[in-house]
Structures are given as C-alpha cells and as structure tokens.
Design a binder for these strands. Structure first.
Lengths: 154, 154
DNA sequence: CTTGTCAATGATACGCCGTCTCATTTAAGC
DNA sequence: GCTTAAATGAGACGGCGTATCATTGACAAG
C-alpha cells in the first residue's frame, strides 16, 4: 500500500488533531519521501520544509514526528553508534528493517523472531515480553559492487 | 565468567593503552557494577567516580566507555524512545538483552535470530547481513507482582 | 635514577538535538 | 462573524557527547 499525503492527514484526523497548514506541508513532504523509500533526520526534515514555508517552526516538526512515530507511520531506526533516522512505513503489518551500513538505504524485512522462541525466552527468564526491536545491518548489492570496484560508482 | 577489574585493565593493555589512575578507577567501579548486573549511564558513572577522585574528567570517562564498548566489555542498550544505558557484559558469547520496561533491569538472553532465517533474508533482499541487534522489552517477574499488588513493594 | 617524549588527562568551551515556554495565530463549532 | 481552545513559531533552555588545548604523568631509553 502506497502512503499518500491524504493517508497521513487521516492519521492526524483520527487522533482528533486539527488540519493545519504545517501538518499539510509535512504530510506532503513525507508522501514524496515515502515514494523514494528515503530516510531522514528530524532536523533535516525541518530544513526541507522551510523551502516551502520559511516560517515553519522546529518544534512543530518535532511534534508531528512524535505523533507519527507513535502511530506507526514513521519508524525510528537506531544505528549501533546511537544515531538514528526515521522512515515512512505506514501502519502496515509488523516488520523490521535491514540497513546498509554504507549508503544507509533501508529495506523492509518481514521476518521476525519466531513465536516459539519468544515463548521459550519468557519461560527461561520469567519475563513477560511485550515488545522487541530487530535491526539488521549489512551491505546492499549496489554497495558490494561499489566496494569491489571503487572506480565505477559514487 | 566473572568480570574483574584485572580483566578490564587487560583490555586496555591489549589495545596498547597505558595503565593510568583514571582507568584503574573505572575498571574497579565497573567490576563492582558487573557483580550487581547493574546498568548505568555514562554521566552517572562519572559522578560515581568523582566520589573516588573529585578531579576525574568527564571526557576521560566518555573516552574509556567508548573503548570498552568497542571491545565488547560494555553493551549499549537502546530503548524504544531513543535513550540508552550501558551494561558490563564481557567478551562473552554472542547474546542479546531483555529489559524490564518498569524497573529497567536487564537480563541476558542467549537466543538469537536463527541462521537459516538470516540466510533467507539475505536471499530475499540481496543484502549481505553483517550484524544485527535484538532488544526485548517486557516486565520482569518482580514488577508484574508489584503492578498487580501496588501496596506491597517499591 | 634521570630524562625525554608523547599519550592521557582534566577543565571547559562548544554544538547538536530535542524540549519547554509563552505570546500570537488560526481551525472549527456555533 | 464570533468564540475558544488547539496549534503554532520564535527562541530560551538543558542534556549529553565532542573538541580543544595546556598540563600531567607513564614508560622506555640511557
């Protein structure tokens, strides 16, 4: 399912939030990002939006991102060094991400921890597991090619 | 295997780093933390160390933590909200962590993504998977009891 | 032991990133 | 329109990690 600006505006609406100019701009911009499968940092998003409206506030963008993360429209992806970025994901089925450590491209992965493994962990640790995160890091095909033949790309 | 101050000092030594007073203090303190299985933030560690030596520098502690994370003596545990803490883990076998969302206690979990799942992901995505992180979040037994009977504990 | 050298330190300035505050604007129901 | 509370935007603030740099001290050579 493709994420459109309308989809995102509906998410705001569903939360009882008003339809405002900044939120429309954000929805538009995220819709185009979704098309490219690109990831972004919040500050970066803010700067991009300033092209459309120089007066848009930083706090406004941060607030919107928080809402969308909570609603699952955006996924927060954390790197091993503690830095992170966001990605438009939509309220789709549960999934995880594989990130290329070279170009930072993000790919969705439907695989997940097997249910019986989770249950085994609960038994072994006496924990009630309520959530989990799985991040995969590696090299995408393009970057493997580029690494093998440095003269060709980038 | 129990982590001792000597173990940690050996790690510094192995990296060609000098044996200094601050590093000895850090090693000592981490050894006691390892005994309790406690987690900590870097700034917190700094404050604790100031009890032993009021002149120890913040940068020094951050530098030491970086080294030890790189060497696997410390594991960085990231929470869904982006905050994080460290935990003494030692260069043990590969493992992951389950964290109690209520008391933040951390437990080690030996379970991991099955090899064949990783291979299936590589086939499906054309990624060469080089690393991964798995974090489990839930409630430990004590906290479940405490939640069910608020009058009793904490 | 003395000395020379460079890693390491510690004090602090700095910068990023996210939050908070609050006066002003604006969406939306009447 | 008018009213009212939500939302905004400008900027102050704060946490946390890094950079800078003069001083200290570890360690090896003589």
């Amino acid at each position: 399912m493709k994420i459109t600006a309308a989809t995102i505006l509906t998410v705001f609406e569903d939360m009882g939030l008003r339809s405002t100019r900044p939120r429309r701009l954000i929805a538009d911009h995220l819709a185009t990002l979704a098309g490219h499968g690109a990831d972004f940092a919040t500050d970066e998003l803010w700067h991009d939006l300033q092209a459309a409206d120089p007066h848009i506030g930083r706090a406004t963008v941060f607030r919107a991102v928080d809402v969308l993360v909570e609603r699952g429209v955006l996924a927060r992806i954390t790197f091993p060094d503690g830095s992170h970025c966001y990605r438009v994901c939509g309220p789709q089925a549960h999934h995880h991400h594989a990130t290329c450590v070279r170009c930072r491209r993000v790919i969705e992965v439907s695989a997940c921890l097997p249910q019986d493994m989770l249950r085994a962990i609960e038994r072994a640790t006496n924990f009630a597991v309520e959530g989990h995160s799985v991040e995969l890091f590696g090299r995408c095909e393009d970057c493997r090619v580029a690494d093998a033949d440095p003269g060709k790309a980038l």
